[in-house]
Nucleic acid binder design. Structure first.
Length: 430
RNA sequence: GGAGGAAUGGCGGAGUGGUCGAACGCGGCGGUCUUGAAAACCGUUGUCCGGUAUCCCCGGACCGGGGGUUCGAAUCCCUCUUCCUCCGCCA
């Protein structure tokens, strides 16, 4: 969430920029500012009374020690009244604080100056496009048919085991995914990212800190008996590693990478859009996360963007980079680039990565700060993350783009990891 | 899952009702000494909120979280969480 200080000092700018998200937050912000004023005066009252209370208590102790019991008891009575009012004041203060908080979490992050207003996906801005779509001819098959033909993904079996959106990868399909995971992790490590394996379930605090709660619980699978959530992305557990912590300025940036399965309920999706691997409930992803200095975070975003781009280019996939418009931008993000690969048999662009700068929005919830050289007060860090990369749609596009008459070619960079250079159906004996 | 014990500042570890934001040690920072460094010695050392106040100053809060008793709680009570020991189960 935003900080109150920022909200107080930059109201106009914030209201203006938030309009790119197609909403007017002025009223809400004014309400918060008003409440904050009330909070301050209450706080002052409570503080003063408390100071007096502390003083009197000390006096009582002193009087008892000196044996002046009567006087002590008198002060005690006086104290009792004061105590009542302090308690009342505190309760009111807490109520106000709670109200402010509940309003604060309704304000999304302020979009970066390059973010344009727009309704949704259709208004995202094309930043770059690269790579050549293969000429496949009339007989090109969509990936779900290729998957069946070569026996590498079984959607029906997944339906049986769990339900729609939980495919079972088999044979070269399974091995190709494993290869991609290793490849992406190795690449990330070369870039200086520390590899971690986080939990796949998180508690409420973690889900709140990265912005999934309070509003998006419907998108996550829940484990109610333990009050856990299955992670929708590694961003959640990985970023939360640094919740409630103060790091040294010289240690920035902190760079982490993790491979995890991701679980998304994606309620309300159906039809052609979700065919095959286009949208699934469980998928594998390698995530990169950076925690960096506020002065550098946008440069870092660009660096992460180029890195993701290089991964896609190295696999020879046609892709484009989109800058999300205000209407499509995530709640906690200030700037997001989406990466889409072209899936030629479907003639569709599939999103395989999303790289975002959350500025201090998550950090504020995380209480993630860094200590600045020469300054006493710690300052909020900036958090960034990106997929590098999400597997299923990449696999879908790969199958389609690299299909040949007698099989599917494996991108050269992956061959060292797969141990095979093409996928061919074997007649028997798997 | 059952029984018992514990949780204190960056770390270790005192403190069982007031004078405790908290002894002492380590670490960190600053200084003296030294050509430099080490050692030794001296000093300093958290976070949050508020006071028109990023540093200084003042008030308040914080001894795992929440609640309670009390004029007064790190200290007593309740509750939750986590950790340790023993037992059970287990890849």
């Amino acid at each position: 969430m935003l900080t109150l200080q920022y909200l107080q000092q930059n109201t106009e700018h914030i209201v203006e920029r938030l309009k790119t998200r197609n909403q007017d937050y002025r009223e809400l912000i004014d309400q918060i500012k008003q409440l904050d004023e009330e909070r301050r005066s209450r706080q002052q009252e409570v503080n003063d009374s408390q100071a007096e209370l502390n003083n009197l208590s000390k006096q009582i102790g002193q009087l008892f020690k000196e044996g002046r019991t009567d006087e002590a008891n008198k002060v005690k009575e006086q104290n009792a009244k004061l105590k009542e009012s302090v308690k009342e004041g505190q309760q009111r203060l807490h109520a106000i604080e709670e109200e402010i908080r509940s309003l604060m979490v309704q304000i999304p992050n302020v979009p970066h100056e390059t973010v344009e207003q727009g309704k949704g996906e259709e208004d995202n801005v094309l930043v770059r496009q690269n790579g050549q779509a293969p000429d496949l001819g009339q007989d090109a098959l969509p990936h779900w048919e290729l998957a069946k033909k070569h026996d590498i993904i079984d959607f029906d079996l997944g339906n049986k085991i769990t339900g729609r959106g939980f495919p079972i990868y088999k044979n070269e399909g399974a091995r190709l995914q494993r290869a991609m995971i290793s490849y992406f992790l190795d690449k990330a490590r070369e870039q200086g990212y520390q590899e971690v394996q986080p939990p796949l379930m998180v508690n409420e605090d973690s889900a709140f800190a990265t912005g999934q709660l309070p509003d998006k619980e419907g998108q996550m699978y829940q484990v109610p008996i333990d009050n856990f959530y299955l992670i929708p992305t590694a961003e959640v557990p990985v970023t939360n590693i640094y919740r409630d912590s103060i790091v040294e300025e010289k240690d920035l940036p902190l760079k982490l990478t993790a491979y995890t399965p991701c679980f998304r309920r994606e309620a309300g999706s159906w039809g052609k859009e979700v065919r095959g691997l286009n949208r699934v409930h469980q998928f594998d992803k390698v995530e990169i996360v950076q925690i960096d200095h506020p002065e550098r975070s946008y440069e870092t975003l660009e660096a992460m963007t180029s890195y993701v781009e290089s991964l896609i280019a190295d696999m020879g996939m046609p892709y484009r980079v989109m800058r999300l418009c205000g209407g499509d931008l995530g709640f906690a993000a200030a700037l997001t680039y989406d990466f889409e690969v072209y899936s030629s048999a479907q003639d569709k662009w599939l999103e395989v990565s999303s790289v975002s700068n959350f500025t201090s929005y998550q950090a504020n919830r995380l209480k993630l700060r860094f200590r600045q050289e020469g300054k006493k007060k710690p300052q909020l860090a900036h958090t960034l993350n990106g997929s590098a990369l999400a597997l299923p749609r990449l696999l879908a596009a790969m199958l389609e783009n690299y299909q040949e008459e007698d099989g599917i070619r494996v991108p050269e960079v992956l061959q060292k990891y797969t141990g095979f250079s093409s996928i061919k159906r074997k007649e028997e004996g798997r």
